[in-house]
Design a protein around this nucleic acid. Structure first.
Length: 574
RNA sequence: CGGGGCGUAGCGCAGCCUGGUAGCGCGACUGCUUUGGGAGCAGUAGGUCGGAGGUUCGAAUCCUCUCGCCCCGACCA
């Protein structure tokens, strides 16, 4: 490609709307342009990078027996009603009506569509397992798009769906897909991708993993053990915390005037927050009250609680609601709680700690020395004890006991063992060898392609621009022809350009005749890995200067050795 | 959806407080010179000041409403 004809200019000044590194460089390098909040046009350079990412993904998906297909972006609402998600998914699902006032949606993921296909195409165990995938536009009406391609409304995703006759088959295939993902992210040049346990969320299912590109600007918080053997999303992270267990002291009611917060009570009674039990009330979507007890220094993790209760809606209860069940806000107590009016949930921290300070369910009073075993013996059967605490940096790792570290990550891929959630709801069944009908067992596998491109830049750049891995660079070689308007330079540059083309290289030729600094700065901003500089000086010696993007060194190469040299450089990459 | 910020030429901004009919840098176009880290000179084109309403003799500037964009948070396969 000749740069004089390349659509998409490089911009010197940083657009004020761009904050993150990848956003700035994608904009400035002429890779993308914003059309509306979270909606982008891919310029030719950006399209080339994305095509390469897609090609690698296709190869790896085909290698695990995936079959590429293509489903529609616009889907009938009734399909989403069948799965139940028409109502359960929030406003991210863009709903609209067609001219006949029929409810339609823009696909934000394609479980419904793929099950619609599967229930007519997959009817026998002999066809299983099967995996189909597509590279397709998704639309999610995000409340707040941000950070360029990291969080957008319209985006391209590779989504794959597997179908199995039994869960062993799903689990085995899930592993294969996991490995394919590891290899995809390696091949597109990501330097640090952590596979972590995740919360399946609205997708449903039990097992799910997220592929996180470690980056400062990431939106997700990841917990890691120092040796990386434990890796988890904040939503599911657990800890190896131990709890103080000593002999139970006598229960003692104490006057604590006006002390309603954990900090105040602890300070007033000369104790630490770890020696207290905190009462937190939630209200479910059905207006039922949940009474959570957790050690005072810990915070409730609402995602864990939501999963435990199998409630999609959960909010903090109002004082009024707390009073309605006979509890006293600020002094609520597990002791004497109206167990028939409220679901009592004990975090393991409160269950396994002894002699806690808890509310007395009476204004201005607390109890010392609450012990679950002794004081709630009669409820021991009915009270659920679970881990619903938010993990903290520095908490012991559940596997190694080492302090957990926290880092930020960009979710570039995720995989789920869906099970039969969609197939059962939508009647996608197959006949097993005994002629028995059963719902298909499913897995699904996604990669955000634009996001992956942005994540690579986050992990591979310098102050001047991206440093593309060879595997996804828009071009492999960038020729800066200085003084291109001089015939001698033009002749050599054009010849080299043609020669490299003939040898199979992807080449960008800067034939604009700009000043050296201008040309170099644009080359840095584009970030192509191999650079050749041709100028009156170099051709006088029959040479070109070779430089690798992102490294300091440069050297002179004889013009007739250039192809060979570049081939060697290319080989070094793979 | 809560909080904050910003909308003036393709991009980055000044002007607004204290109303008087729009400017700077970069970019674009033409010509000449220049050519190894974002060149110089001369010239040209380009803006209903996000939109609507109001106050005023007069509004980019003051008031009201509205739309859009960015950031933080909530939310988020």
């Amino acid at each position: 490609m000749r740069m004089s004809k390349l659509v998409g200019r490089q911009v010197k000044e940083t657009p004020k709307d761009a904050q993150t590194v990848s956003h700035r460089f994608l904009l400035r390098g002429g890779y993308i342009r914003s059309v509306s909040a979270g909606i982008y046009t891919l310029l030719p350079l950006g399209r080339r990078v994305v095509s390469k990412v897609e090609a690698i993904i296709r190869e790896e998906m085909d290698r695990v027996d995936g079959q590429e297909m293509l489903m529609p972006v616009v889907l009938p609402g009734e399909l989403w009603e069948e799965s139940g998600r028409y109502d359960t998914v929030g406003d991210e699902l863009l709903r609209f009506q067609d001219r006949n006032e029929k409810a339609m949606v823009l696909g934000m993921t394609h479980e419904e569509a793929v099950v619609h296909m599967a229930r007519t195409e997959l009817s026998s165990y002999k066809q299983l397992p099967a995996m189909v995938y597509q590279v397709q536009t998704k639309y999610r009406d995000e409340a707040r798009p941000r950070a360029g391609l990291i969080r957008v409304r319209e985006f391209t995703m590779k989504d794959g769906y597997s179908f199995h006759a039994n869960s062993e088959c799903l689990e085995a295939y899930y592993e294969r897909c996991h490995d394919a993902y590891v290899s995809i992210f390696q091949r597109i040049g990501m330097k640090d991708v952590q596979v972590i346990q995740a919360d399946p969320g609205m997708m449903g299912g039990n097992v799910s993993h997220e592929f996180m590109a470690v980056a400062e600007c990431g939106e997700d918080t990841i917990f890691l053990s120092p040796d990386r053997s434990y890796r988890s999303n904040r939503d599911v992270a657990t800890t190896g915390l131990t709890f103080v267990q000593e002999g139970a002291l006598p229960l003692e009611k104490v006057h604590t005037p006006g002390k309603t917060s954990i900090e105040d009570v602890a300070a007033f009674l000369d104790a630490t927050p770890e020696q207290t039990g905190k009462a937190v009330f939630y209200t479910t979507g059905n207006d039922e009250l949940v009474f959570v007890v957790i050690r005072g220094d810990l915070e409730v993790n609402e995602t864990k609680l939501r999963n435990h209760l199998k409630e999609s809606e959960l909010r903090l209860a109002t004082d009024r609601e707390i009073e309605d069940i006979g509890s006293v806000p600020g002094y609520a107590s597990p002791l004497g709680v109206a167990a028939e009016k409220v679901q009592l949930v004990f975090d393991r921290s409160a269950r396994h700690s002894s002699n806690l300070i808890v509310g007395a369910n009476e204004v201005d009073y607390h109890y010392r020395n609450f012990n679950f075993e002794r004081d709630l013996a009669e409820l021991a059967e009915s009270v659920e004890i679970v881990d619903i605490a938010t993990a903290r940096a520095g908490d012991p790792c559940p596997l190694t006991g080492e302090p957990l570290e926290i880092t930020r990550g960009i979710e570039v891929g995720n995989i789920f063992q869906l099970g039969t959630k969609y197939s059962a709801a939508m009647g996608a069944t197959f006949l097993d060898p005994n002629g028995k009908r059963a719902p298909l067992i499913m897995g699904c596998y996604g990669i955000g392609i634009g996001r992956a491109m942005a994540a690579v830049i986050e992990q591979s750049h310098d102050q001047y621009g991206p440093i593309w891995p060879m595997s996804i660079a828009p071009y492999q070689v960038h020729i800066c022809a200085l003084n291109y308007k001089k015939e001698a330079v033009r002749t050599v540059a054009d010849l080299l350009y043609a020669e490299l083309h003939a040898s199979g290289f992807e080449v960008l030729l800067d034939d604009r005749g700009e000043k050296a600094g201008f040309s170099f700065a644009d080359a840095d901003l584009i970030g192509i890995p191999l650079r050749l500089i041709i100028s009156p000086k170099t051709i006088a010696n029959g040479e070109a200067e070779f430089k690798r993007r992102g490294s300091e060194g440069k050297d002179m190469v004889a013009l007739d050795a250039v192809v060979e040299r570049l081939k060697a450089e290319l080989a070094r990459e793979s």
